[in-house]
Amino acid sequence: MRLRESDNLDCDDQSLGGGIYFRHNIYQPYFYQIGFEYLGQYEAIYPALSNPSVGAKYKGNVFAIGVSAGRIFSLTENQNIVAQIGAMPWYIDVEGDELGSKVDNDNKGISPFASLAYQYNMSKSSYLELGYQYVYGVGSDSTGGADINQVFLGLGYRFGSSEPETVVQTVTETKYVTVTENSMTLNLGENNSTVLFGFDSSTLNPDMYSLLTPMENRLNDNPEALLTIESHTDSVGSDAYNQKLSQRRGDALKDYFTNKGISADRITVKAYGETRPLVPNTSAENRATNRRVVLFSPSFEKQDVVNEKTQSSESSVQGAEK
């Protein structure tokens, strides 16, 4: 027996239906959904098999399982558009009142479907949906086939989402600022018991190395820093001799710093000999004052790194929807 849709004498085109749906967020804003649906009961009048001039009443109940994937498009904080597409296995139970007998025609199949809905969030865990669903080609020649167009109203509940998940992100931003380092001067003279060199000698006194440490640290920690070594003597001896002694002492200090890893092109030696006394060379005490070394590192600018941390929070609703 075959019932072609084109053969019906009269047919319902409206019916009430309902369903239960499970929706799970795969990854915001995407989800999958499984629905158990009753698509309604439809009645139609077909020519009776034994007497086509008489109408026979048929009614069919349509049941389906919808499997779909979808996406949520956010409009505002409380309003979304929900779109989905999928496949719907269906089952139709058709009963016909033929003349003097009952006819039972059951059928099943799979049809594609799609839906589009407006979603309004009443709270963090509940929402309403108003939408349209289209199912293509439900039924067959033996049961009477048709496309099903539905307007639906649904109430949903989100499990496990009464409180949104808050993700706090810490972002570290690196900035560079220009810093000015002040100059440094070390006055090393015999009148303050800082005897760097013995009498008539250009050999550094190892006991005085610790006095050079502050300048050594400055130069090693700051590649921008430069050093000028000024070497002075008293007036004992000839001018030429004192000039050469002053040069040897300055060079000895330069060698000390280069051996500590300081590049030689950052160091300048100025040998003044006896030409720049602080006081007249008229006594042993004054001559000790004039026998001195001055280490001078001028001010400079350098780039310092400043790490600024900022925090941002982001809330997301995860979980299943029903």
Rank of each mutant, 00 (worst) to 15 (best):
R2C: 04
E5W: 03
N8R: 05
C11H: 14
D12Y: 05
D12F: 02
Q14M: 10
Q14E: 13
Q14L: 12
S15A: 14
L16G: 14
G19L: 03
I20E: 07
I20Q: 12
Y21Q: 13
Y21K: 08
R23E: 14
I26R: 00
P29A: 08
Y32L: 09
Y32P: 06
Y32C: 13
Q33M: 06
I34H: 03
F36N: 10
Y38E: 08
I45D: 11
V54E: 05
G70M: 02
G70R: 00
I72D: 15
L75H: 00
N78F: 01
N80F: 06
A83V: 11
I85V: 09
I85R: 00
G86D: 10
G100P: 01
S101T: 04
K102W: 00
K102Y: 04
K102F: 01
Y118V: 09
Y120P: 06
N121G: 08
N121W: 04
M122K: 08
K124E: 10
S125W: 05
S125P: 10
L128E: 09
Q133D: 14
D147M: 02
D147W: 02
L153W: 03
L153R: 01
G154I: 05
L155T: 13
L155G: 15
G156I: 07
S161I: 01
S162W: 06
E163C: 07
V167F: 11
V167C: 07
V168I: 10
Q169L: 02
V171A: 05
E173H: 02
Y176Q: 08
E181W: 08
N182P: 13
S183F: 07
G189Y: 08
E190D: 13
E190T: 10
N192A: 01
F199T: 15
D200W: 05
S201D: 07
S202K: 00
D207E: 13
D207T: 10
S210I: 03
N217P: 11
N217H: 10
P223D: 15
A240P: 07
R249M: 00
R249I: 00
L253S: 02
F257G: 10
D265A: 07
I267V: 04
V269F: 00
V269I: 01
Y272D: 10
P280H: 06
S283D: 10
A284V: 09
N286D: 11
A288W: 01
N290W: 04
F296I: 06
K302C: 04
E308Q: 04
Q311N: 05
S312Q: 03
V317R: 05
Q318P: 02
K322G: 14
